[in-house]
């Protein structure tokens, strides 16, 4: 790599570098807006910009398969999931003044300090390192698929099991608690004992105490 260092000028960026830099700036700006905006839905939308920017960066780094996976999964599903989450938790539309918690300044200090330290370390370590993007494409679909199904089959399959488990877990957690009427709920103690405020029909055997916090919370919400 020292040879490469000699052949590249630091102050003579290539076109790819300029593009990377510009997209990186957009991405970073979108990320910053994501974590600072007062409008919750806007934060999700800005997250789309940030994630999309990262996908573009993947493309610039010649990892095209990863880029499309990024677009599909993150922009396509994760953000949609997040938006659904915001809706289901009745996140307020519009500006909400208390979107940030009280320890915002401590968080800022920690984040800035970490950023400074890491940037310093990273630049110090890699200031004479260049990526050679001119060779064969590193992350074409063919290359990725080849390595994935040649060398990474077993982890890949294990990952599918993980996803299945996550799927089941998410369903179990978020399912409404109707099964308490049909069974005593003992086979799923976790979900069986949680009863939400929105299931008045299913809480005959549990007197009001279980619903009250939720009810009151809703009342408070209505008043607020």
């Amino acid at each position: 790599m020292t040879l490469a260092a000699a052949s590249h000028g630091f102050l003579s960026p290539t076109g790819v570098e300029i593009a990377f830099l510009l997209v990186g700036l957009v991405t970073l700006g979108a990320a910053v807006v994501t974590v600072t905006t007062k409008q919750l839905v806007h934060a999700a939308l800005w997250l789309v910009v940030a994630l999309g920017g990262i996908a573009v960066e993947y493309l610039l780094l010649t990892a095209e398969f990863i880029a499309w996976v990024q677009v599909l999964i993150y922009v396509g599903s994760v953000v949609v999931l997040l938006l659904f989450g915001l809706m289901l938790t009745k996140a307020p539309i519009g500006r909400s003044e208390n979107a940030d918690s009280g320890n915002r300044w401590a968080a800022l200090i920690v984040a800035v300090a970490s950023a400074a330290a890491l940037v310093w370390v990273v630049t110090d370590a890699f200031r004479t390192t260049w990526i050679d993007l001119d060779g064969a494409v590193q992350g074409s679909t063919e290359a990725s698929g080849r390595s994935l199904f040649q060398y990474w089959v077993l982890p890949f399959e294990a990952l599918s099991v993980l996803l299945l488990a996550a799927l089941v877990g998410a369903i179990v957690l978020s399912r409404k608690n109707d099964d308490r009427e049909r069974s005593d709920g003992s086979e799923r103690p976790g979900s069986g004992k949680q009863s939400g405020p929105r299931e008045q029909s299913g809480s005959r055997e549990q007197p009001g105490s279980r619903e009250r916090p939720g009810d009151r919370a809703r009342l408070r919400e209505d008043q607020g």
Partner: peptide, 15 residues
Amino acid sequence: GNVQTYLGALLAGSF
């Protein structure tokens, strides 16, 4: 009891 405080302290310490 605020998880964010704990996490902040943890990260500051590790930093």
